[in-house]
Write a protein that binds this DNA or RNA. Structure first.
Lengths: 227, 227
DNA sequence: GCAAAAGTGTTGAGTGTACACCCATGC
DNA sequence: GCATGGGTGTACACTCAACACTTTTGC
């Protein structure tokens, strides 16, 4: 492929390789977790990494991120959002790779993530207790968590983390897992209901040893910004 | 360059080329403007574009953006911020290029931007009256303006648009140019002074046919987030 | 003295925060 | 009847928006 360059006309330019890495967040046992794979071979053997891969010539970045997830974790059709592009010269010891990070939120109960045979393992890891990570993926995750914290304040992005129907207390637990501290129950309910992003159903969560809780749904299961 | 790939081991991968484009904003005659160059040859001849270029193998994205600006507009040492990565398949008819957009704000009076001889022209253009643009650069600029509007609300980023010393009215004019509507003078002054990002000097702007205005400086000439 | 821009406070509305008790259910 | 989590309201502080007149200078 030829790209015209203002210095050396008609030179064949091979710049850095281009990759995407995907950061899938979920709440597991009340903690914010991220989906990681364990690398089976090469200089990063046994270390953990975000699902990622090289961008093919016929893919946009968004498509590349979708394809990586489909291939490496069997996950399809998530709403993925571009986060940032990482480009330190030594971020991959095998060669020069610039990587565009993407993130998404899922309800982990809906996914039974399968280990593909060319990885040693695939698993959810608490973002506060990350294992030894390959590349600059720890840095990526820290950046992603920061952005996620900011984003839940002005969008309904947590819809991805919750099942179709859920109680307000369940929703509050998700917020608490992300921001990392407890929230006042009355204020939380007041704020969320005022946003008008939820609709009450006529169902209740029964079968517990206490008062049943009303179930709610999101008005729209897609990203909406509140003002 | 070889990159190991989980599908085809030891294949030589040539993915999309990687570029950076830089968006330099300034206020000119009270309007938000962006620095553009007019392309002299090729399929985009006579159209305008952001200063940009291919990322070299030994550069980070940040460095590539700095180098592009130095080469194409003689501008050095700006605080550039990464905006977003654009990757539509047909965004450059000459071939497949993914481009990472950067932006910065400058006080245009401090720069005498020179036309390099391989361009037809380099000039500031009002972001609301853009000429015919090459690539997807119009889309990039629209995205950049949106982000800029959001950003001035919670950071001191406009420091780049103002000279070392300035009056509050001058600062207010910059805000008005960016957000695109007039702002109440008393509320603006109250808000800005409360942020505690400015220091009063003992100087005044004299020589006009009206009451002299106090001059202020930024406490820090680097990006600071308020709260 | 007049034109032109600088500078300055108050009020009302709305928003965010802190805080404690009764309710419905399972066992 | 008791343990468990569900559900509710008020008071205060703070923030934001609207609004008009006096001051200082050049001419």
């Amino acid at each position: 492929m030829k790209i015209q360059n203002s210095q050396k006309k008609d030179a064949l330019i091979i710049g850095p390789a281009l990759a995407v890495d995907t950061m899938i967040f979920a709440i597991r046992e009340g903690k914010l977790c991220v989906l990681l794979i364990q690398i089976g071979t090469g200089p990063y053997k046994d270390q953990w990494a975000l699902p990622g891969g090289i961008v093919q010539i016929g893919e946009t970045l968004d498509e590349a991120a979708q394809n990586v997830l489909a291939k490496k974790a069997g996950i399809k059709g998530l709403h993925l959002e571009q986060l940032y592009s990482f480009s330190k010269l030594d971020r991959d010891v095998r060669g020069r790779v610039v990587s565009v990070a993407y993130f998404a939120l899922v309800d982990s109960d809906k996914f039974s993530v399968e280990t593909m045979d060319y990885y040693m393992a695939i698993d959810w890891k608490n973002v506060e207790k990350l294992p030894k990570m390959a590349f600059d993926h720890k840095e990526m995750i820290q950046y992603g968590v920061k952005r996620l914290c900011a984003k839940i304040e002005y969008s309904n992005i947590v819809y991805g983390l919750l099942p179709k129907e859920f109680t307000l207390t369940e929703m509050q637990s998700v917020y608490e897992a992300i921001v990392g501290h407890v929230i006042d129950k009355r204020n939380f309910r007041k704020k969320i209901l005022a946003l008008n992003i939820l609709v009450e159903t006529d169902k209740e969560r029964t079968g517990q040893k206490n008062r049943p809780a009303k179930l709610y749904q999101f008005r729209k299961r897609q990203l909406v910004f509140t003002d």
